[in-house]
Amino acid sequence: MAAPMELYCWKGDWGLPSVDVDCLAVLTYARFSGAPLKVHKITNPWKSPSGSLPALRTEENGVISQTHQIITHLRKQKYNADYDLSARQGADTLAFMSLLEEKLLPALIHTFWIDAKNYVEHTRKWYAESIPFPLNFFLPNRMHRQHVERLRMIRGDTWIEDEEELEKELYKDAQECLSLLSQRLGTQKFFFGDFPASLDAHIFSHLALLLKAKLPSSKLQQHLKTLDNLCNYCVSILGMYFAWDTVASQSTSPKKPQAESQDGDEEPHKRRNQILSVAVGLIAMIGYALLSGIVSIQRGSAGNAVASRAAMEEEDEED
């Protein structure tokens, strides 16, 4: 019997199976297509075999870490949610995927990672409380920089340095995108009728995250809540495909930062992670001591001193 495919993705919260848009897209597509995955829901990217989330461990192709590559691999394994789509619907899928990437995703990145109030009081707070010590000292800030760079790459030459003007343009594009999606969905169950496709997985991952997150600053979220069919669409998918996940994520909350668990059988590269964790902890403490003036380095006569996670088997891994 072939070894099961293993998916590593961010854990869920706020009634969602995952708090990350890319992980949520992969999880949703797998549910739609019936792909049998063993899911590891974690809060430490270093426990992923690729060092990033989402990541799919396969017997044939090793580790796959890009969302579109993971979905392509599932299609090649005969788990294809788009099998019954027409050529026209296939073209529509590409068009709407591009719309999401160009118009809605930038606003989501800004909402969660750049908006100062949301970032400090919601996003960074959640990750800092969820990621184990000592990684919670620096991973949230590194993720912030990665999302800012991703936004810059999407915007390209249209990047606006003025923060207020950038926010205004991003939110305007996102509101137009949401209104267009609402008009396209209409009274249908899914975007192509009675059965879900890959487009639904991607749209749901963007909308559900925005709908369910407990944001202190919520202009775009409030606009989404005025579009009843999109809200009902998200609630319907959660109820049909993630009922158990919803109960599980609502019954748990981020733990206090603590040391790594000793669950060695489920943690790839365990020794590497332990060594890195200890090293990072030491560096963080030394850096704090130096910056706060607790410890100082004096120049001596001999020279300078140098310092430098339907049919998926799921498994929640608590750090």
Rank of each mutant, 00 (worst) to 15 (best):
F191T: 09
Q175S: 13
K172H: 08
L178D: 00
P216G: 03
L185G: 12
F190I: 09
Y171A: 04
Q183W: 11
D194I: 11
K189V: 12
Q175L: 03
K214A: 01
D173W: 06
E167P: 12
A174H: 02
A213S: 12
A201M: 04
P196F: 07
E165C: 11
L180I: 14
T158K: 15
D200R: 00
E165P: 02
L170V: 05
K212M: 05
S198W: 04
E164A: 10
K212A: 01
T158W: 03
A213R: 01
L166R: 09
F192V: 11
W159T: 10
L215W: 06
L180K: 12
L170F: 04
G156V: 03
L181Y: 08
D173R: 15
D173E: 08
L207A: 05
H206Y: 08
K189S: 10
A213P: 01
T158Y: 08
D157V: 10
A208N: 03
L185K: 06
G186S: 07
G193M: 11
R184H: 08
L210R: 00
E167C: 14
E165S: 13
L199H: 04
K212H: 09
A201R: 02
G186Q: 12
E176G: 02
Q183L: 12
G186P: 11
C177H: 05
G156A: 04
C177L: 06
E164H: 11
Q175K: 14
L170R: 01
L181E: 05
L178K: 00
T187E: 14
L215H: 01
I160T: 14
S217R: 10
S217H: 11
K212P: 00
E169R: 15
I160F: 08
D200V: 03
D194L: 08
S182W: 04
P196V: 06
S205A: 15
R184A: 15
P196G: 07
L166E: 09
S205E: 02
E169Y: 12
L181A: 06
E167I: 10
S205R: 01
K214V: 01
D194R: 13
F191R: 07
G156H: 06
K172F: 08
S182E: 02
P196I: 05
Y171K: 02
I160P: 01
E167K: 14
G193C: 05
S217W: 01
C177F: 02
I160N: 09
D157Q: 11
A201F: 04
C177M: 05
E167W: 10
P196K: 07
H202M: 11
P196W: 06
E167H: 12
Q183S: 15
E164G: 03
F195M: 12
T187D: 15
F204L: 00
S179Y: 13
H202Y: 11
Q175C: 10
A174C: 09
A174Y: 03
T158S: 15
L181N: 06
F192G: 11
F204W: 04
A208S: 08
L210T: 00
Q188L: 09
E163W: 13
G186D: 07
G186E: 12
L215F: 02
K168N: 08
L181H: 10
I203R: 03
D200Y: 00
L181V: 13
Q175N: 04
F204I: 05
D194F: 09
E165W: 11
L166A: 13
P196N: 08
L180R: 15
S205F: 02
E164Y: 12
G193L: 06
L210C: 04
R184P: 00
L170Y: 03
K214L: 05
E176A: 15
H202L: 07
L211K: 00
L210W: 00
C177N: 02
K172Q: 09
Q183N: 12
